[in-house]
Amino acid sequence: MSPRLVPAQRDATGRRDRPLRVTVDGVPADGIAGQTLAGLMLASGRTSWRRAPSGAPRGLFCGIGVCFDCLVTVNGEPDVRACRRRAVDGDEVTTHSRAGHGDADGPGRTAREER
């Protein structure tokens, strides 16, 4: 099984969820207000959303904004750390790939450009 959000009725914090929906490469993904994009993507069944220069998949690593392995494009803004950005209803997330760009500088062309 994959990562998941503790169901609200079983969560000892007694939270009251406000659902929201984003899209990841055009596919809808549901979450709740307050989640980071990384938390949302993990809990909605994605374990990776970025490709390293060799094309190898990458997912969440440090979780606190240090490793830059979780970069995504959000509403056209590239290189956003998914572990630090709170999801907003309607966010359009595009995944990154650094594959096939040789020594290309800087992170991330979007996956869409790759195909």
Partner: peptide, 19 residues
């Protein structure tokens, strides 16, 4: 993917209630 830091696991559990 699936290998993460202990800090990441804790941040997600404490900060977002995500396992």
């Amino acid at each position: 993917p699936g290998v993460c830091t202990a800090g990441a696991a804790q941040a997600l559990a404490k900060g977002e209630r995500v396992a």
